[in-house]
């Protein structure tokens, strides 16, 4: 099976029928829920309700879990039909049509934490001429860093194409001022292996 990142840009790949298919597939829902719970576990938030940014929120599958866990959230996604599916599902969070490679449009210290499920590898794509993945990664991490409160965490599950992509992502995050690293779940399983980026904006309170 080819990776969706290789077929078309996200906003084109997730058209109306793909968005419906993605959102209503119980397999996708199950995996998405599992990864969201794992990301929350890695964020290790205190109990009170947090204000969370969901980067690449899609139709709000992870957002619904954030709501169930008592948090408030705002989501960004580049695919209009994913967001429209989210509206139909009446998710609680605000939905923004946005290209995260152009920056996170929120003022300093807005969010307590941020999560991202299966989205940030799209930043490594250069599917149109004039697109510079390095510049987009930096813009993303710099503006994400600013939008988080100091010490706020970002946990992102992602699908790197290769080790170089992981290095580029981690490198851009470090330049932006994040500390942290990568957590690899089920490293022995080709099918279930999952990459999580676990970052802290500012000083790190614990080693990862």
């Amino acid at each position: 099976m080819s990776r969706p990142e290789e077929i078309a840009p996200a906003e084109i790949f997730y058209n109306d029928s793909e968005s419906q298919k993605y959102t209503t597939s119980t397999r996708v829902q199950h995996i998405q829920a599992k990864m969201t719970f794992r990301a929350l576990e890695l964020l290790n938030l205190e109990d009170f309700p947090h204000y969370i940014l969901d980067v690449g929120c899609g139709s709000g599958l992870s957002g619904e879990i954030l709501t169930e866990e008592g948090h408030f959230w705002t989501g960004l996604d580049i695919a209009p039909s994913m967001l429209a599916t989210g509206l139909d599902r009446e998710v609680e969070g605000d939905l923004f049509l946005s290209d995260i490679g152009n920056g996170i449009p929120f003022r300093a210290g807005t969010f307590d934490a941020a999560i991202s499920i299966s989205a940030i590898q799209w930043l490594c794509n250069a599917d149109q001429s004039g697109i510079d993945p390095k510049k987009r990664l930096l813009r993303f991490f710099n503006s994400l860093f600013a939008s988080l409160k100091r010490g706020g965490k970002f946990c992102a599950q992602f699908y790197p194409l290769n080790d170089l992509q992981t290095e580029n992502i981690l490198g851009a995050a470090k330049i932006a001022g994040f500390s942290g690293g990568c957590v690899l779940d089920d490293p022995e399983s080709k099918k279930n292996k999952k990459y999580y980026l676990v970052l802290t904006a500012g000083r790190s309170e614990r080693n990862i």
Binding site: L76, P80, D94, F96, S98, D99
Partner: peptide, 14 residues
Amino acid sequence: KNSIPNFLLPPHLA
């Protein structure tokens, strides 16, 4: 529109 703010930037501003 329809409760969704559009923050996509035109190429000259991106």
